[in-house]
Simulated scan of single mutants.
Amino acid sequence: MDAQQVPPDMSNWTPRAKFLDNTHNKSELIHLLSSTFRKHHITVEQCDNDADTSIVREALAAASDGSVEVRAEDADVLVMLVHHSSDSHHPLFLTTSNGSYDVRKIKESLSETQKSYLLFCHAFTGCDTVSAIAGHGKTTLFARFCEGDAAEYIDIFLDTEATKETVIQAGTAIFKYIYHGRDTTLGEIRYNMFSRKAAAGVIKPETLPPTEGAAAQHSLRAYLQTRDWILLQSMSLNPSDYGWTIGVHGYEPVPTLDPTAPEELLQFTSCNCHGDCSNRRCSCKKNGVTCISACGVCNGIACRNCSHDVVEIGQNLASQLPQCPSPTELSVLPLPGDPSSCDPLSRGFMLPWSQTHYSVVEPGSPVNLQAAQTAQLHMHREGYQQYNKKK
């Protein structure tokens, strides 16, 4: 109806979603409905926490005496009804705004493995309390899980007595299985995927695997939810121990316990000193970090607060230092110039003094090979293998 047809007493009505976002409104609505139902001799059970398990428990109890129709919009309720229903129950139906579902027929269409893994799969791949895994649909993952390759890890989530440590280990292994990297670490899988996407020029962070810390918290929440559904008991364990924390609006998920970034990045600072950065006038020195390439004057190379010892090249040292090595002695990165020339003696080259800093050596200049080799070794350890000494 258009605005002219709205009755005056309805013009200020609040949308349902916005109304229910207010916890006070929700509490008052529940109180009003409960009191009205009781006045009409309808049994009401009010839940302090999530009502889904209570709904399923009461529906199963009623199905022992006759057929039952459950009205809900939550897929969690349907999954629990399918898992817990048996041949001894009378017909069970779940009715939503999209139609009605026969619980018995759904269960009969599933294999034994699918029946066993249904609760775990629904929880781990995303439900009301556990985030979904971007780029991996429920149907696809359900089929992969039921192939049996991850059975030993899934069984841990179905064990109501499993420890937190085993749950985290199993959850991490399942994530590695999802991303096809069972023989490596999540960090390596994440780095390799990032590198491929960066090379392609398109990076969507949500499609990357979770970090080890995020996978641990996800696994704990998924285990707690699966356990609640198995036992039909809300908050069967302390949520604060299983991926949740108490915030302003109640329980909130813990994304990860790992730091946001390495400490050296969190303490990022730079200076613009005209001296040698050796005293506390230097903002880098004052904050206890080394100078970096973003520093205005020293560029993290020409000062006493660098992460390396800069080799001073002067005429008084020329007689004591060897000349630039030939291409057969050291692999180098030629400076921009004639692409047909690869001779570092004629074009100059760059020596890696640290992970992020390079010193340009002009053609024919002497260089400290020991320092260069030490810097190269440091880069090898950090995974930077652009520069390798030839055997």
Rank of each mutant, 00 (worst) to 15 (best):
V103Q: 04
V77P: 15
A17R: 06
H90N: 06
D183V: 00
F175P: 07
M235F: 03
K391H: 14
V70S: 06
K204W: 07
G187F: 02
G126L: 03
T125V: 07
V289K: 12
I106P: 10
D258I: 09
H41P: 11
C146K: 04
A61K: 12
E329M: 02
C306G: 14
S240T: 08
Y223M: 03
Q315R: 06
K204I: 02
Y223S: 05
P352I: 04
V167L: 09
T184A: 13
N287S: 02
L266Q: 12
S236L: 03
D48A: 11
T185F: 06
C271E: 10
F157K: 01
S278P: 03
S331V: 05
H84M: 04
L208C: 02
A132Q: 14
R304G: 06
C291W: 04
V360F: 12
Q46S: 09
T140V: 04
Q315W: 06
E188M: 00
H136P: 13
S111C: 09
L94H: 09
H249N: 01
P209F: 00
S234T: 07
S234E: 07
P352C: 06
L208Y: 01
E112D: 00
K138G: 13
C127F: 08
D309P: 14
H357N: 09
D276L: 06
A216T: 00
G99K: 05
N49D: 15
H357E: 05
S100H: 13
C284Q: 00
